[in-house]
C-alpha cells in the first residue's frame, strides 16, 4: 500500500503519542484543538485546494454544527448523537441551497459572498440570544457517550477527535485519487475544458461545498461537547480567515499541507504567548511572508524540493 504509507505513518504517530505522554499538556489539551483545526482545514482544502473555490466563511458551518448540538441537547433534551445528526442535516440543506448561487461567482465576488455568509451567521449567533444565549453563549452540554462509554476525559476525547481527524484525512486522500477528485481538479484547472469533458461543473462544485460543510458541522458538534461550551467568538470572521491561512500555509491542494498548516497555526498561539501583545503582529507578518515568498505553501515547497533532490541524485547515478 504505497499510496497510503504517509497516512499510516501519520496515524501511527498520532495514536502512539498519548500512550507515551498521557499527561502532557501539548498532547492531550493542545492536541484536541489541533485535531479540530486539522479536520476543518482538510475540509476547507477540498473546496479551496481541490476545486479552487475560495471560502472566507467556513467557520459558519463549524459554528452551525456546534450551536445545533448545544441548542438541541440543552433546550430540547435531544440525544447528543441525534442532535449532531440534526445539525448535520440542517447544514447539508442550507449549504446545498446556497451552493448554486454562491458558486456561480468567481474570484473576488466568491470571496465576498462567502465572507458575507460567515458574517451573517456570526451576527445571528450574537443577536438571537433567546436561542443562542447571545454573546455569552451556551454552556453545560451533556456528556457524549459512545457504546455506553462516557467520553469524559481529555485522553478519551483525544482518541475520539483523533479518529474523526484521521477519517477526514483518509477521505481527503481518497478523493484526490479518484474520478471525483479529478473532476474537482479539472474545475480548478479550466472550467470550460471540464465542461467539455462532460463534467457538470455546477453540480461538482455544489457537492464538494456540501461535503466540506458537512465535515465542518460534525467537527462543530464534537467541539461543542468537548468544550462543554459554545460562544460566538469561536466562529467569527477571523476564524474563517485563520482556516484559510492554515490551508494556504501548508499548500493549497495538498491534504498533508492542510494538516501541517493547521498544526502550525494551532501551536503558534502557544508559542507566541511569550510575546504577548506582539502575537497579532507576528501572525500577520508570517502570513504575508509565506504568501509572498512561498506561495505554494510550506509543505508543498518542501515536498517539491525533496522530489527535485531525489530526481537529481537519480540523474547523477545514471
Amino acid at each position: 500500500m504505497k499510496r497510503l504509507s504517509g497516512f499510516i505513518l501519520f496515524a501511527t504517530i498520532c495514536l502512539i503519542l498519548p500512550i507515551i505522554f498521557p499527561d502532557n499538556y501539548y498532547v492531550t489539551v493542545v492536541g484536541l484543538t489541533i485535531f479540530i483545526n486539522i479536520i476543518l482545514a482538510v475540509s476547507l482544502n477540498l473546496l479551496m485546494g481541490y476545486a479552487g473555490q475560495i471560502s472566507l466563511g467556513h467557520a459558519a458551518f463549524f459554528g452551525l454544527g456546534a450551536y445545533s448540538s448545544a441548542i438541541l441537547t440543552i433546550k430540547y433534551g435531544l440525544n447528543p448523537w441525534l442532535a449532531m445528526l440534526a445539525g448535520a442535516a440542517f447544514v447539508v440543506t442550507l449549504s446545498y441551497v446556497l451552493s448554486r448561487p454562491i458558486l456561480k461567482l468567481k474570484g473576488h465576488y466568491l470571496a465576498m459572498a462567502t465572507l458575507g455568509l460567515g458574517i451573517i451567521v456570526h451576527i445571528f449567533f450574537v443577536q438571537a440570544d433567546e436561542l443562542t444565549g447571545g454573546p455569552d453563549g451556551i454552556s453545560g452540554l451533556p456528556t457524549l457517550s459512545f457504546l455506553g462509554l462516557a467520553i469524559d476525559s481529555d485522553v478519551k476525547w483525544y482518541f475520539v477527535l483523533c479518529s474523526y481527524m484521521l477519517l477526514s484525512v483518509l477521505f481527503s486522500l481518497n478523493i484526490a485519487d479518484s474520478r471525483a477528485g479529478r473532476a474537482l481538479s479539472a474545475v480548478h484547472g479550466s472550467e470550460i475544458a471540464a465542461q467539455m469533458m462532460g463534467i457538470n461543473t455546477a453540480k461538482v462544485k455544489s457537492h464538494i461545498f456540501v461535503f466540506s460543510a458537512l465535515m465542518a458541522s460534525i467537527a462543530g458538534s464534537l467541539f461543542a461537547h468537548q468544550q462543554d461550551f459554545v460562544s460566538p467568538e469561536s466562529f467569527s470572521f477571523f476564524f474563517s480567515i485563520e482556516l484559510v491561512t492554515m490551508v494556504v500555509l501548508g499548500g493549497l491542494g495538498s491534504t498533508f499541507g492542510a494538516v501541517i498548516g493547521a498544526f502550525i497555526l494551532s501551536i503558534l498561539p502557544e508559542v507566541l504567548i511569550v510575546f504577548e501583545d506582539f502575537e497579532v503582529l507576528i501572525f500577520g507578518a508570517i502570513l504575508m511572508v509565506i504568501m509572498i515568498f512561498l506561495p505554494e505553501g510550506l509543505f508543498v515547497a518542501l515536498k517539491n524540493k525533496v522530489a527535485a533532490f531525489l530526481a537529481g541524485r537519480q540523474e547523477g547515478s545514471k
Partner: peptide, 13 residues
C-alpha cells in the same frame, strides 16, 4: 487576498 489580509492583521497588531 491572503497577502492583504496578512497586511491588515499586521497593521492591526
Amino acid at each position: 487576498i491572503i497577502i492583504t489580509i496578512g497586511a491588515s492583521i499586521f497593521l492591526r497588531g
